[in-house]
Design a protein around this nucleic acid. Structure first.
Length: 392
RNA sequence: GCGGGCGUAGUCCAGUCCGGUCUAAGACGCCUUCCUGUCACGAAGGAGAUCAGGGGUUCAAAUCCCCUCGCCCGCG
């Protein structure tokens, strides 16, 4: 893979570039839609192309379980298997160490913002997470076991013990055959304490080196920076991972209790990473985050928001998130977004999509997924234009 | 007209036989919040009921009795 920087902003760390892969070029900054199980849920690959999507990210853990990397390899690799001719990434399974582990135990995601609400004494709502909850070094999640050389999962399919470590992840990712692959890491939880995060980081760093050695393909391998909300750990991680001969860098993990701290944390990391290599921010990318993270120097980023929320009946628009399930939209004979020229907004109206949602018709989810993806991609396209004009 | 059945939130319905634990349960729908390297159809809260109406029995009635109204079925 070849990464070229076309322009660097004079007023921020934003940059304009393109990544050349054997499956075509990705203009950056770029939003990466999530195709966990080798599909952007509800859409065909051709439809995804029509949403201005340039590259997708699939998941090693999920594809290993179903259908298994051998099936994909025999089909000729992920691109052929899912009939997607543009570039692809695969996530390593490192996020599942968190999401199926402590994430499940405490019912939390990688960005914490509920803590203040949950901890209110008058809040009678029973919650799994308490203000005092903290993950200390030495504790293990209930459902999985994090060992020195990898992680034991219980297969959600048949409960069978399943081991995934750096070598296994790279082997699977090689068989899947995406253009860009990631090192196997442990995504730490926002409630992990300093010692836990530090020890976890050491392991993630070891795994990164193992991944580097294990790789035996021409795929681009990104090393992942961890370190949680702790400045010295983030810097240490960025320095260490940045010093290794990766083709690019992923920035993973949590960003504290307050999302507003995220740009600051990204700055800690980006400053330590090699200028000429691409940076991917893992799993972050709500519309309100985009300009900030791009200004911090992020080139690509993936997020489930447009597709996930589409299946919850939500549309992203210039007026904010709209819950199209609400009965009031049955009376709105207008497109999801006034200014949107996506294939859905040109021909479908809110009343119809509202009706489909209320009738539990899956076409509603398809239409919203299409619109949301287009909206996100178009949003980033506009940011690219702003960088070009020197406005960002 | 006669005989039988039924009437409980917007909808479907549990509870009625054997009255008290019913300040009436559930499902769907509605409203709110939440869901950032995924989890199609999710999570958590909330609002909503003169138990058809009236009378009676009883310490106590959605529940038992009587009348009225409405709906359904059968017979004429």
């Amino acid at each position: 893979m070849n990464f070229k920087i076309l322009k660097k902003s004079k007023i921020s760390n934003a940059r304009l570039g393109f990544m050349e892969t054997s499956h075509g070029v990705v203009e950056t900054p770029c939003f990466v839609p999530v195709a966990t199980q080798a599909t952007v849920k509800t859409l065909t690959s051709q439809e995804v192309e029509q949403t201005k999507s340039q590259i997708l990210i699939a998941n090693t853990f999920h594809l290993h379980l179903k259908p298994g990397e051998k099936v994909v390899e025999k089909a000729g690799g992920l691109h052929t298997f899912m009939n997607w001719k543009k570039p692809l990434m695969t996530d390593s399974g490192g996020f599942q160490v968190f999401s199926l582990g402590f994430g499940k135990d405490f019912g939390i995601g990688k960005i914490l913002k509920k803590r203040e609400i949950i901890s209110k004494p008058d809040n009678r709502r029973p919650s799994i997470l308490r203000l005092t909850d903290e993950i200390k070094y030495g504790t293990q999640p209930q459902r999985i076991k994090i060992m020195q050389d990898g992680v034991y999962f219980n297969s959600p399919l048949d409960g069978e013990k399943l081991f995934l470590g750096p070598k296994e992840s790279i082997r699977i990712q090689e068989q899947l055959g995406a253009d860009i692959i990631f090192t196997f890491d442990e995504c730490t939880s926002p409630i992990a304490n300093y010692e836990y995060t530090k020890k976890s980081l050491e392991k993630t760093h070891q795994w990164a080196q193992i991944c580097l050695k294990a790789k035996n393909s021409k795929q681009a391998l990104y090393g992942i920076v961890q370190g949680g909300k702790f400045k010295d750990l983030r810097q240490e991680s960025a320095k260490f991972i940045g010093s290794l001969p990766f083709d690019g860098f992923g920035i993973g993990g949590e960003f504290g209790d307050d999302k507003r701290q995220m740009p600051k944390m990204l700055d800690w990391v980006v400053r330590e990473l090699p200028e000429r290599k691409p940076r991917h921010l893992l799993g972050i990318g709500h519309l309100e985050d985009m300009e900030k993270i791009i200004k911090s120097g992020i080139d690509t980023f993936d997020c489930i928001a447009p597709t996930h929320y589409a299946r919850r009946g939500l549309a992203f628009t210039s007026e904010g998130r709209l819950d199209l399930k609400q009965i009031k939209f049955l009376k709105k004979r207008e497109p999801l977004d006034k200014g949107c020229v996506c294939g859905v907004c040109l021909i479908y109206k809110k009343d119809y999509i509202c009706h489909l949602l209320r009738a539990h018709e899956i076409t509603a989810l398809r239409l919203l997924t299409f619109h949301n993806l287009y909206y996100f991609n178009n949003f980033v396209e506009e940011i690219r234009a702003k960088i070009k004009k020197g406005e960002i």
